[in-house]
Design a protein around this nucleic acid. Structure first.
Lengths: 335, 335
DNA sequence: CTGAAAGCGCTAACAT
DNA sequence: ATGTTAGCGCTTTCAG
């Protein structure tokens, strides 16, 4: 059996309470005994048993990330994992651990019910992709500390934190205008793709500020794939009043669009400007490289981590906020 | 306070022991009482407190993944995260949880020492990238259940599991031969890049079996980047006895090489064949798409999960093995 | 097949 | 400033 708090107490000639207080930096312990006991801990190579602490404290100092973890998800959605990295770093800085679990539509409720009732973690961070009304109800009823990565589509009682995609879209549009383009097109995902939709909203907004209205004919929405981006760009290029620049809602669309532009032997950036979001995975694979509005998803995870710990401290704190750390990376695809 | 085992016992008119046994499917409980107690659990919406179980059992049913989690790692190394996904899925199938922690050179020993002595997890899975002799010593001395994702460069007492990169290289070479190429080049990372080195070894092996020797002049090793791949391919193309096909150790090198081939207006696959490894991120961005030896890193994680649970069961089980699930994806970059 | 009893190692009121 | 005491909720021998 390993060294326990009793061994330390006995050797120091004090009660286990005192040792416990030293362990938890309770200020009422005299400097003298505190340091003496710490000495003894070192001597004995004592380490508190985390399981016993968890049990006695009724808390685990662990946060659970609940998300979708299907095969290939790291390739299809590295952003989520980058957010996870930020989250882990924020938590470990405060001596909290990160657990992760993947749920699916068919088991999400059960998994979460267990998590909540078994009290195996102190709080949960949920990825927006797995949020449903039922999950929300469960969490709200249990009054379980939570924060969602991403803004739900409907009004919600859950806490959430999200990037400001609208602001990013605005940035993209303003950049194109500022370098001399004047007719801007948009290639995006489907309407239920909130990221894309917000970015379009932002583009509209940015243009309006300069009294410019984007032509509905210059807005193409479809699948988020290279092929679809290719086709949508072709549609834009067919038009006699075609735009002189285009904002693509993501890397896949941008790469497809770029290929279409190349196929038409149109010069980038002289005759067509192109801006995309997120510096990964394709923005450096084209020639010229793509100008990008980069979004700091690591930071989103970090802030989520800090937020959930705040919520643990003040359980009635409601966090619902857009944060943004978008930066313009000027590459060759714009003048 | 939530429902506890006592409440269930009282309502059922049995002892907590009996309830506990039902909970743990101990076979000596009569079918009748077992089902009766299960009923009552449902009625009361009873869920065992995981923290109490962990404490009483002296185990947490949690595995910790120890790896490097710096900013941008999800973008730079999605394969590691895909392995994590496989690991998580394998563990949750057996009702184990996955914890993750990122360590650095300067804090790895301390973090691991704490993990081991605090007994906060039952076993650890370590990513090869963070393995050092000191960490190994710590783990071996503590006799802590472990498995490494990847094969250490030196003889080790740690358990490990890795893809068979040599075999994958062999597959690549054999494919090129089988479709009619006869002079094969290799573009790889530096010598300390074990993945690349093993793949080259495999290529050599595959060729030898057909009595072919790869010319040392046709082997280019350097940085693993698009730019470096471009330059190395240019080097190969300069030669009068240039190869008619090339194996690239990874996606970055392959994309660079592909660009160089295009710049020389050499036709793919007619006049130059190209094979790479891993179907991500770039194999679908070129025209034609790249023929790929795809390695199932998800499966590696899954097997690691199953292995660590085996080790937990039989602590003196030593697993050191190459596993492979490489599949050839024939795309347009080879005849 | 079931129960009594003794922990697991630490925390936290409360008292001194 | 330190100690007493009573748990936290479950598991597990050992008896019956």
């Amino acid at each position: 059996m390993a060294i326990t708090i009793k061994d330390v107490a006995k050797k120091a000639g004090v009660s286990t309470t005192t040792v416990s207080k030293v362990l938890n930096n309770v200020p009422t312990i005299s400097e003298a005994t505190a340091s003496r006991i710490k000495e003894i801990m070192k001597e004995l190579d004592y380490h508190p048993n985390r399981r016993a602490q968890n049990f006695a404290r009724q808390s685990t100092r662990t946060i659970l990330l609940v998300t979708s973890l299907e095969k290939n998800s790291a390739f299809e959605n590295p952003h989520m994992f980058e957010t996870m990295v930020g989250l882990q770093n924020a938590l470990s800085k405060k001596n909290y651990s990160l657990n992760i679990v993947g749920i699916r539509k068919d088991n999400g409720l059960d998994v979460l019910r267990d998590v909540i009732s078994q009290k195996s973690v102190d709080g949960i961070v949920l990825h927006i992709s797995i949020i449903t009304k039922e999950l929300e109800n469960l969490i709200i009823q249990a009054d379980f500390p939570n924060i969602v990565l991403g803004c739900p589509e409907y009004k919600t009682q859950l806490c959430w934190i999200d990037n400001d995609n609208t602001l990013s879209g605005e940035l993209a549009a303003k950049h194109l205008l500022s370098v001399g383009y004047d007719t801007i097109g948009f290639i995006g995902g489907r309407k239920n793709d909130m990221g894309s939709t917000c970015r379009l909203e932002g583009v509209r907004h940015g243009l309006e500020q300069q009294e410019i209205t984007i032509s509905e004919a210059h807005i193409q929405l479809g699948e988020s794939s290279i092929e679809s981006g290719y086709e949508m760009m072709n549609e834009l290029l067919k038009k006699k009043d075609r735009p002189d620049s285009v904002v693509c809602a993501n890397n896949y669309l941008a790469l497809g669009a770029f290929k279409a532009i190349q196929a038409h032997r149109i010069r980038v950036p002289e005759d067509m400007g192109i801006v995309t979001f997120d510096a990964y995975p394709f923005t450096k694979t084209t020639d010229p490289n793509l100008t990008t509005i980069d979004i700091d998803v690591y930071d989103l995870g970090k802030q989520a981590g800090e937020s959930i710990l705040q919520i643990l401290r003040k359980p009635n704190l409601k966090i619902q906020t857009y944060r943004t750390l978008a930066t313009l990376i000027e590459n060759g695809s714009t003048k």
